[in-house]
Design a protein around this nucleic acid. Structure first.
Length: 985
RNA sequence: GCGGGUGUGGCGUAAUGGCAGCCGCACCAGACUUAGGAUCUGGCGCUGAAAGGCGUGGGGGUUCGAGUCCCUUCACCCGCACCA
């Protein structure tokens, strides 16, 4: 036993040793000055939750770490940092419940995450660690806010500019010539008027132009959380975190004019290598549509209703106009007779929660206002309706309804019996009685000057006419809304604004950070003000109230990739030199759930900072990969609901059919709680199931004893029915008609979560198999992007591979001798041709695999390589040293140890990655598969140097060929050198 | 409904248009062992005694040759959803 000890692979000691070595030597600290080319690989910012990491979290981190380590071997100066998105709702909710300051729980959670990450052996540069809740960090988040506050978007230069340039223009020319992204209701004024404005008026006017502004907007208000939420934080009408109902509410809020960047956010997508689905999500979210505005004069009034339409070609098919319930004209135009119904409808529609509204998408509702507009071309009178299918926030909040050519208008018209004039003849059969024709194809009819044109030409012509007659103009609309930025919460960055005479003022930059004050409770005040209103004596210069809302979770993460470049700079967000050196993130890895939140905001802020000249790049990440989600495998346990309610389970028995035989198990009726093994439960109707903790099951077999101990008191007195009897208090009572005593649970794939008792922690895997095994195994599970359930069934294969790798270096193969320390056994002899071929084949594959992020196939290739070298009893240093470098990005601990044992003093981390040499793969012969009509029949070994004609000749002369030709003449012979020969008969 | 993706052994998966199923798990047989959740050897798509036949969700096409390309259809997963 002792003699064999050198063969043992003691991963616990090895991993601890090298993790300490890397930390003590700062092995992975990125250099800010380097001759080497740079490579920046970043993981999406984790939020340190109280639950700790589960095995799904490291998947992306392992992939990015492999990339980081690989690039170091390839001679790059690698930036691979990690930090914490540490402001956020969960810590605050916990604080509200327990009174514990969120800073304390956050600190504990970060420590736990850090500890877990350290065990996996990531090559992060921890000197650059950042936390968004750290004043040293959020000072710069506040600084960016002030930059955005002090900017306006100039459509002429198509970028953000300093607000001073706008003020100068106002002083010179008023706003007549200003072409800016600003509020819709901005009034025009002259230079003289501007100069006569009061402070307040000037502030209010500028507010309509600032890129972050205080404005009234419909927001997603979540009463349960007591805060507003961004659109991407609302899913199916409820809050993404916690699932609380959300309603629309008009509130004064700090917002970000992200809509100014809509077109650039759209265009930028074509310049970055992100997944198509992610780009599509963003394109859809931005939602660009080209169309025209069109004014309808309200009959008997000077007012007009402006609509936005992408189908001006259908203007002669308009049969009514619909306003959103929130539309400001509704109140003004409603007739006396209709007032009561309209008021009722509007009130009801406004009060409906987002969820109700979404649930009723297919229910048609609306009311007639009693008012009419004139058709702009025919002058015919058209009814004005109110309908909640028209959204207040999109376009103008009003539509011209063309029931024959718009599905939604069709439904509305059908429901209320309104006319559906057809103006397009489709190019295929279509029944206008049952559905609208929405396709942009066909010929125009009944449309005056548009008659005979096809749709595309008609759209063009209609816009021309509308513009000629001054009825409206061509316009591009975006679905993207400005992002609400203020949160009525405590645990976030304070917004660096104070109010002087009701006028919001940005704090001077040199007074930042504005520290988050202490409060007595993390709840709103009695008056409904945000928690920060509770802070005692918290006033700017002791006299001016600060802004009481805080920034949303996405503020800190919208620019963090820049801070890692220069994490300790106290004078600047990032120095220009370092921002230029590190540039873009080369590889960004994270979950697809950030598609329309973080990933849109970070692009927005990056473009803004670029406009202001702080950085040179205008997209944060060149390449982005979404790692798949690792789901959990839950184990469900069945329980009999009420044994007396089911006729078949009476008289102390449980009966079910198995293999066509009715089986009966007697369980005394004194036992009330009965669990049923899954295969039995499936044959009984009266069962419910719940999650059993997975640690009590193995291959879906339940450890009844451990589970019983874990159960609460009442359930401890339970019977566990198997198909051959039942367990009760540790004793098995066999039924007399055979069957087994194994109690099974039923596996089910679902999200990994504490409440489902299916969480697997990486710590457990590291403890049992080691970090290198965890790393390899997570990669081995399948392609990185694919979602998959966690399942440890295959882990022994990977752990066996590492043992075998270890053994390869320690086996006393012939010709070897002790080398370096440990018991490695090496030979300096020339490697054989076969050994070199194995090595170079592997170099080629691994290089290709990493370059295309195919980490799962690498693991297979390592296995093949080690199997071959083991069979060859290879102990050549010239083979085994490069092999370690190949494996080291994947399994860094074992390779460091072996590298060290081979006598090297330095870490393996910066060893040159082996170069592939084609020469070693060249073979003298090739074993040609010979196929007939595409079907392989036999193989024949031929010299690799033969010409196609020679190959064809030799194949046709071969004995087997004659057999398969069976006397027939070959029509054609296809020879693909070193691939295949195909004979067509 | 729209958008994106995935369908290959018992399972996870692999295959620049060129011998489908590499590698691993599970399983079967054997060796070494007091023992095996250790290690090693061999087998393992389905069917068939064998020769062979059949096989990448279904149907069609391009090609000497298709898991791979094209069309069509079905199923499942993810995202979005009254955006005029």
């Amino acid at each position: 036993m002792y003699l064999l000890d050198y063969m043992e692979y003691h991963f616990r000691e090895i991993e601890k040793k090298w993790q300490e070595y890397w930390a003590n030597n700062k092995t992975f600290a990125a250099k800010n000055n380097s001759e080497k080319p740079k490579y920046y690989v970043l993981d999406m910012f984790p939020y340190p939750s109280g639950a700790g990491l589960h095995v799904g979290h490291p998947l992306g981190y392992i992939a990015s770490d492999i990339m980081a380590r690989y690039k170091r071997h390839k001679g790059f100066n690698v930036l691979h940092p990690m930090g914490w998105d540490s402001f956020g709702l969960p810590a605050e909710q916990y604080a509200i419940q327990t009174g514990q300051h969120p800073a304390i729980t956050t600190k504990q959670n970060i420590a736990r995450y850090r500890e877990q990450m350290d065990k996996i052996g990531f090559s992060f540069d921890w000197d650059r660690e950042i936390k968004t809740s750290d004043p040293e960090y959020y000072k710069w988040t506040q600084w960016v806010f002030i930059q955005i506050f002090n900017s306006w978007y100039n459509k002429n230069s198509n970028k953000a500019e300093k607000i001073e340039t706008l003020i100068a223009e106002f002083e010179k020319n008023g706003n007549e010539k200003v072409n800016a992204c600003c509020d819709e209701d901005t009034k025009s004024f002259t230079a003289a008027q501007w100069k006569s404005f009061s402070e307040k008026e000037k502030s209010d006017t500028l507010m309509q132009y600032r890129i972050t502004y205080l404005g009234e907007a419909y927001v997603n208000w979540c009463p349960a959380l007591g805060t507003v939420l961004a659109n991407d934080e609302v899913k199916d009408g409820v809050s993404e975190r916690g699932g609380h109902p959300v309603e629309r509410k008009l509130m004064k809020q700090w917002s970000m004019r992200i809509t100014a960047y809509a077109q650039r956010l759209l265009d930028g997508l074509d310049t970055i290598d992100w997944t198509e689905s992610l780009k599509e999500s963003q394109r859809y979210w931005i939602g660009r549509s080209e169309g025209t505005s069109l004014k309808f004069l309200i009959n008997g009034s000077m007012l007009t209703i402006e609509v936005f339409t992408t189908r001006p070609d259908t203007v002669f098919g308009v049969s009514f106009v619909t306003l959103a319930p929130e539309h400001e004209l509704v109140e003004k135009i409603t007739s006396q007779e209709q007032k009561a119904v309209v008021d009722e409808y509007v009130t009801k529609a406004k009060n409906r929660s987002e969820r109700e509204r979404q649930a009723d998408v297919n229910k048609v509702s609306g009311v007639f206002t009693g008012a009419y507009v004139e058709h702009p071309f025919t002058k015919k009178l058209i009814e004005i309706w109110v309908g909640d299918y028209v959204l207040a926030g999109y376009g103008t909040g009003a539509v011209m309804a063309v029931p024959a050519h718009d599905e939604r208008d069709f439904k509305f018209a059908t429901h209320f019996g309104l006319e559906k004039p057809q103006v397009i003849t489709p190019n295929t059969e279509h029944d206008f009685a049952t559905a609208s024709w929405d396709e942009k194809e066909g010929k125009l009819i009944n449309s005056d000057f548009l008659n005979g044109l096809d749709v595309k030409a008609a759209i063009k012509k209609a816009i021309e006419e509308i513009q000629n007659k001054n009825l409206g103009k061509g316009k591009i609309n975006f679905r993207l809304r400005d992002a609400v930025f203020g949160r009525q919460r405590y645990w976030g960055e304070p917004i660096p604004i104070y109010y002087k005479d009701g006028i919001p003022q940005a704090m001077p930059e040199n007074e930042l950070p504005l520290i988050l004050p202490e409060v007595d409770k993390y709840l709103p005040t009695e008056d409904g003000e945000p928690p920060l209103a509770r802070a005692k004596d918290w006033k700017y210069k002791n006299q001016f109230d600060y802004e009481w809302t805080t920034m949303p979770g996405w503020a800190g993460s919208s620019w963090y990739f820049l801070r890692y470049m220069d994490a300790k700079n106290s004078g600047q967000l990032v120095s220009k030199a370092l921002a230029d050196y590190w540039g873009q993130v080369d590889l960004y890895i994270g979950g697809s759930e950030h598609a329309t939140g973080h990933l849109l905001y970070v692009r927005f802020w990056t473009k803004f900072l670029h406009d202001m000249g702080h950085i040179n790049v205008d997209e944060p990440a060149k390449k982005l990969i979404n790692q798949g989600m690792i789901q959990g495998t839950s184990e469900m346990i069945y329980r009999l609901i009420d044994r007396n309610s089911n006729p078949s389970q009476k008289n102390d028995t449980i009966s079910f059919e198995k293999d066509l035989i009715l089986k009966t198990i007697h369980v005394p009726s004194i036992i009330k709680n009965i669990f049923i093994s899954s295969e039995v439960a499936k044959k009984i109707t009266s069962c419910v199931y719940k999650n059993a903790p997975i640690e009590f099951t193995k291959n879906s077999e339940l450890d009844i004893n451990s589970y019983t101990i874990w159960l609460n008191t009442e359930d401890k007195d339970a019977a566990f029915v198997c198909d051959g009897g039942y367990w009760y208090k540790g004793i098995f009572h066999a039924a007399n008609n055979g069957g087994g005593n194994i109690f099974r649970t039923s596996p089910e794939v679902e999200k990994m979560s504490k409440s489902k008792y299916n969480v697997v922690s990486p710590d457990d895997i590291c403890e049992k198999f080691g970090a290198d095994t965890l790393r390899l195994y997570e990669m081995f599970l399948g392609p990185l992007e694919q979602s998959k359930p966690w399942n440890t069934n295959g882990i022994t294969g990977v752990s066996g591979f590492l043992k075998k790798l270890w053994k390869l270096y320690h086996s006393p193969f012939e010709g070897g001798q002790a080398a370096g320390q440990g018991d490695v056994n090496m030979s300096d002899a020339e490697p054989t041709k076969a050994e070199l071929k194995t090595l170079h084949k592997t170099i080629k594959k691994i290089t290709e695999d990493i370059e295309r992020f195919s980490f799962n196939t690498s693991v297979s290739n390592f296995m093949i390589c080690v199997n071959e070298l083991m069979d060859a009893k290879c102990n050549k240093r010239a083979i085994l040293e490069p092999l370690l470098v190949l494996v080291s990005p994947y399994a860094p601990h074992i390779t460091e140890e072996l590298w060290n044992q081979l006598g090297h003093k330095e870490s393996i981390a910066f060893e040159k990655f082996p170069e592939f040499n084609e020469a070693y793969l060249v073979e003298d012969n090739f074993n040609y598969p010979v196929s007939f009509n595409g079907k392989t029949r036999f193989n024949i070994e031929l010299s690799a140097t033969l010409s196609n004609a020679e190959i064809e000749k030799m194949i046709l002369e071969a004995e087997q060929t004659k057999k398969f030709l069976d006397g027939k003449q070959p029509k054609k012979v296809i020879v693909v050198p070193k691939k295949i020969v195909n004979i067509v008969v």
